[in-house]
């Protein structure tokens, strides 16, 4: 998957102080916001990439053979499921995964 990864090992004391800071670094994940997890049925998926286009978080990666969801940053909003015409995406409650 070609998606940035969070570095959770930083120590606050090591960070620079001041109003400017190096951009594009992730130190936290968003998965805690998720109640329902989208799961792609690769058999039904026709790779129309509609889900990739409309994901507000960009959590769907199109680089591989099949579409992959980065569950570190998917918030489970369900926009992809509604956009999926073949019905290849289902929302599964996190506790039941």
């Amino acid at each position: 998957m070609e998606r940035p990864k969070a570095d959770l090992s930083y120590v606050v004391e090591a960070l620079p102080l001041g109003p400017a800071f190096e951009t594009g670094q992730l130190h936290d994940v968003s998965s805690g916001m998720r109640t329902f997890r989208p799961v792609i049925d690769t058999e039904k998926c026709v790779k129309c990439l509609r889900c990739f286009l409309v994901c507000p978080d960009g959590a769907i990666d199109k680089s591989g053979e099949t579409l992959e969801i980065d569950y570190d940053y998917c918030k489970g909003c369900g926009v992809c499921r509604r956009a999926c015409k073949p019905g290849a995406i289902s929302m599964v409650k996190e506790a039941e995964v």
Binding site: E2, P4, A6, D28, F52, P56, D57, K75, G76, G78
Partner: peptide, 21 residues
């Protein structure tokens, strides 16, 4: 379109509400 735009994300890992337009 979805096929031609880059896979690279430049606004990624933000903390917006789920489903933020």
């Amino acid at each position: 379109n979805a096929k031609t735009i880059t896979n690279q994300e430049l606004f990624y890992g933000h903390k917006a509400c789920p489903g933020c337009g």
